[in-house]
Write a protein that binds this DNA or RNA. Structure first.
Lengths: 213, 213
DNA sequence: AAATAAGTTGACACTATCGTCAAGTTTTGA
DNA sequence: TCAAAACTTGACGATAGTGTCAACTTATTT
């Protein structure tokens, strides 16, 4: 009763000017960082693209690092979402199909974020905190265990789960990270829904049956 | 007789000072470009890393573009080497095995070059000339035809060859481009010979048999 | 040996970016 | 309504990087 929250008709400041401007800055920044990397992106340009004065950008983010690490956190927050499909109780086929689908959808809908993260990895991943690394490792380990369980139950052949995941990551993230190569390869301007479906079909067919006769 | 070439005991200038210094510059540059990208790499830093005065760098390469495009040419010169394994006369299994092996070896031995190229693709590929794109497209097309031939001969199941190649590119290049993620996943400091062998085994087993039972 | 070509490099003017600051304006909460 | 907090922003000094140039040195050719 004492905990009843009285809603005011006015939004709290957190949801108004600061939130709005930080979002503008982060939106401009993720695009620039994804193309030019940390070193090649200037606050001056982030300011220009977000239509805010440079000093205003400094007001919200005192250092370029702060923008960058905020973006890393945002990307990492969604990193393992697709892996939720991979659980002990599920059958491998359905689980992996859903996983690949989710990964390709991420590539389709979050190409800039994917490229931002890829750029940081090319750069050496120094902004990738020990905490984030540990989290990634622990989540991967957990899902490697699921694969090992499937292998032990003979629902899956004996492959190295770590390498298997990396194969899937490389294959699915390719469509976001190297979309210009994908478009070149497919000889079109832009990847469409059918391309992602074809990608899914190819990957799944390969995983389920293999490709050789 | 008038065409007889008289060899001098002295090497031609092309092979001495210019070649040596250009190599130093390119070596420093490829590393910097692979991490910081075109925009984040300065001539000042290239000069410092190559232990040459900045004006000297300008002497050999009048613009940063010239260094960059030279590197792109070098990378592109070797781009399709691995694809030589994919020919009509070969059996798919051996051909693909050799191809994946060659791609993983490239990832192992040319990780910096791979990352340099990846960085340029993240950046948008503007330095990737129309000529180079056309070459890549034509070589890819040719090898897509080989796969289609195998499919028609029922040596290979009906998958989309373009997507199949992209799946292989993503999977094999992952070990170079995102080697820090690979090392995190495998919980080691550095990828070794056995890791590349395990990668090859996983990819090939998946391609040959699929992974599900 | 002398002339020519190639290579070296310190110093410099210019430009873009960084980061700061204080004055001013707007928003919020009491 | 007023005070405090949050936000805005032009201007500025410092710095890093860019690109140039001419004098000098070394290497090569005649």
């Amino acid at each position: 009763m004492g905990d009843t929250l009285i809603l005011k008709s006015t939004k709290i400041p957190e949801e108004r000017i600061r939130a709005r401007n930080e979002a503008k800055i982060l939106k401009a920044a993720v695009d620039l960082f994804s193309r030019k990397g940390f070193d090649g992106t200037s606050i001056t340009e982030i300011a220009r693209i977000s239509s805010l004065p440079k000093a205003n950008v400094y007001y919200y983010f005192p250092k370029k690092n702060d923008i960058y690490t905020r973006l890393i956190e945002k990307v990492m927050a969604g990193w393992d979402k697709a892996l939720e499909h991979i659980t002990l109780e599920r059958e491998p086929r359905a689980a992996l199909s859903d996983y690949v689908k989710a990964k390709l959808e991420y590539s389709r809908d979050n190409a800039i974020e994917s490229r931002f993260f890829a750029n940081e990895m090319l750069r050496g991943g120094q902004f990738f905190s020990a905490l984030q690394k540990a989290h990634m490792r622990s989540v991967t380990r957990k899902h490697v265990e699921v694969l090992n369980h499937w292998i032990a139950a003979e629902k899956m052949v004996a492959v190295d789960p770590n390498h298997f995941f990396m194969m899937l990551w490389g294959a699915t993230e390719y469509y976001a990270n190297f979309s210009i190569l994908a478009t070149e390869t497919l000889e079109k301007q832009k990847l469409g829904k059918k391309d992602f479906e074809a990608a899914h079909a190819t990957i799944m067919k390969t995983i389920i049956h293999g490709c050789l006769t």
